[in-house]
Design a protein around this nucleic acid. Structure first.
Length: 578
RNA sequence: CGGAGUGUAGCGCAGGUGGUAGCGCACUGGCUUUGGGAGCCAGAUGUCGGCGGUUCGAGUCCGUCCACUCCGACCA
């Protein structure tokens, strides 16, 4: 492609709204253009990178025996209703009505679409495993798009799906997919950390995320300092300490003036925060708007993802002061002791206790009375939790569960996620097949996703310098950036550059040819910004020195003069050798 | 959804106390220049985010809506 003909241009200055490096550089180099919040156009150069990234995906998926297909973005509501996600995922799922007033959705992922096909296509264990993938636009109306291509409302995802006859079969396949993902990141020269993750709205039994560690990441990642444990903050488990051996003591009310926070109470009574218990309140998004009364040791924050899982995927929001008082609790001095579980009209009060609040004896808690707390609260004796689970949020410096190692908090960008879905979709959609014994079985499924644009941004985050992007060869928009420093068509350098452009193109090298009438400074600055790994300069000076100048983007200083004779063969070897 | 900030030419920005809009880059034509974002001359480019109000007069003051960016999504 000739740079003089390119649609899109480089900017001399950073766009003012761009904060993170990948957003700045991709926009400044003309790879992407914003249309609205979280919605971007891929300009020709950006689309070339996307295509190369998709080539990498295709190569790895095909190697696993996955078959490429294409499922629709427009989905009927019914399939989402069958799996329950029509109601459970919230406004991120874009809904619309067709001209006949039928409820429809724009697919945010394709488990439903794929599983629906199985209804008619899957009969026999002999067909399994089914391994498929597609690369399709996803629509997600995110609450807050951010950081350029990192979190957007429309993006292309490579999502693969596997269908298995039993758990053993997916257990055998899953590591192969994980390895394929590792290969993808390696092809993009990305340094990736694998972490255990929560499966979120996808459901299922296990999942692994691939994280790019970065200060601009939006996920909290905990990595043990012995390197043996890594998990997303949504899931990370930690050691809450051994409960002291003491006999349960009698409840005792104490006057605690001006002690609304745990820190104030602990300080006032002279006890550590680990000897206190606190209450946190939510209201469920169900028909009866059940009240969720969370009890947790005073020093620990609540992990809402774990809490949601403990509640079986129930959606909820923080309760207001009025709602708290309406159930008989006193904000700042709240306690589950003595509260009615039946709130009338079928509305329930659900007490969810973190295991810490149950295992630790004789804690200080609220008295449901202004300026009073009670000592020696013991769960089960003084109140009955409906659910006991680990719902605590890990914090920097917490101890690991099975070792003396300590968890370190870091930030990361999620750029790939693999899920073991179990029967999360096959069961509600009534998918069965006949096994070897002629018995109907429900298949086990997996899904494996990676976003094209986010990966592009991640690559830029890891591969750039002060002058611009430095693309890894496999995903660069072009193989080679050919710069002619001549301005007039009749100059020898321009004619040589033209000849070289034709020859390289004929040899199937993808060349970006800077044939513009611009000064050398402009051309070199643009070449650095765009970031193609090989730069070949043709000028009167280089010709006098005996050929053309070859320089790699990541090298500093001057390049090397290579003779024109045999140049095409020379550069092909160089590019392929990389 | 809550909080903060910003909207003036394609991009980056300036426009005390109200008087009818400018700078740099980019763009068009011409001449010169040619290895790290060139120089000179001549030009083109604006619903000052929208609507409403105050005023003889609003980019500027008031109200309202919209868009974009950032922070937060709990700890009683």
């Amino acid at each position: 492609m000739r740079l003089s003909q390119r649609f899109g241009r480089t900017l001399r200055e950073d766009p003012s709204e761009a904060e993170i490096i990948s957003h700045r550089l991709l926009q400044r180099a003309g790879f992407i253009k914003p249309l609205a919040s979280g919605i971007y156009t891929q300009m020709p150069l950006g689309w070339r990178v996307s295509r190369r990234i998709m080539d990498v995906f295709r190569y790895e998926m095909d190697a696993l025996g996955c078959q490429e297909m294409a499922m629709p973005i427009l989905n009927p509501a019914e399939i989402w209703q069958e799996t329950g996600r029509w109601d459970s995922v919230g406004p991120a799922l874009v809904r619309w009505k067709d001209r006949n007033e039928r409820d429809m959705a724009l697919a945010m992922t394709h488990e439903e679409a794929l599983t629906d096909i199985l209804k008619s296509e899957l009969d026999s264990y002999k067909q399994l495993p089914i391994l498929v993938y597609h690369m399709q636009t996803k629509i997600r109306d995110e609450p807050r798009p951010r950081a350029g291509l990192i979190r957007v409302r429309e993006f292309i995802m490579k999502d693969a799906y596997s269908v298995h006859k039993n758990q053993a079969d997916i257990d055998k396949f899953y590591p192969k997919m994980i390895q394929a993902y590792r290969n993808i990141y390696q092809s993009c020269n990305l340094d990736i950390t694998e972490v255990e993750a929560d499966s979120g709205m996808m459901g299922g039994s296990a999942s692994h995320e691939f994280m790019l560690m970065s200060e601009s990441g939006e996920d909290s990642i905990f990595i043990s300092n012995d390197g043996k444990y890594a998990a997303n903050g949504e899931r990370a488990v930690f050691d809450k300490g051994m409960p002291p051996e003491e006999a349960q003591a009698e409840l005792e009310e104490v006057h605690t003036p001006n002690c609304k926070t745990i820190a104030e109470v602990a300080d006032f009574l002279g006890v550590p925060q680990t000897k206190t218990v606190k209450a946190v309140f939510y209201v469920a998004h169900n028909k009866t708007r059940d009240f969720i009364f969370v009890v947790i040791r005073g020093d620990l924050p609540v992990n809402e993802v774990k809490l949601g899982n403990a509640l079986g995927g129930l959606l909820f929001e923080a309760a207001t002061e009025d709602e708290i008082e309406a159930v008989g609790a006193v904000p700042g001095y709240a306690s589950p002791i003595g509260l009615a579980k039946d709130l009338g009209n079928g509305r329930k009060l659900i007490i969810v206790a973190d295991d810490s609040a149950v295992n630790f004896p004789n804690l200080v808690g609220g008295a449901n009375k202004i300026e009073y707390h009670v000592k020696n609260v013991n769960a089960r004796r003084d109140f009955e939790p409906d659910i006991i689970a680990d719902i605590a949020l890990a914090q920097d410096g917490d101890k690991c569960v099975d070792s003396e190692a300590v968890l370190e908090l870091r930030r990361g960008i999620e750029i790939g996620h693999c899920f073991k879905l179990g029967t999360r979709y096959s069961k509600p959609m009534n998918i069965t097949f006949l096994d070897e014994n002629g018995k109907a079985q429900t298949p086990i499924m997996g899904s494996y996703g990676i976003g094209v644009g986010r990966l592009m941004a991640a690559i830029v985050e890891q591969h750039h310098d002060d002058n611009g992007i430095i693309w890894p060869q496999n995903v660069a928009p072009f193989d080679l950036h050919l710069v002619s420093l001549a301005k007039k068509a009749k100059e020898k350098a321009m004619q040589q550059a033209e000849t070289l452009y034709q020859a390289l193109t004929f040899a199937k090298i993808e060349v970006l040819f800077d044939d513009r009438r611009e000064s050398p400074g402009v051309k070199f600055a643009d070449a650095d910004l765009i970031g193609i790994p090989w730069r070949v300069t043709v000028s009167n000076r280089s010709l006098k020195a005996g050929g053309v100048e070859v320089k790699q983007r990541h090298q500093s200083g001057k390049g090397e003069i290579i003779p024109l004779e045999g140049f095409v063969e020379y550069i092909i070897k160089k590019i392929q050798g990389k």
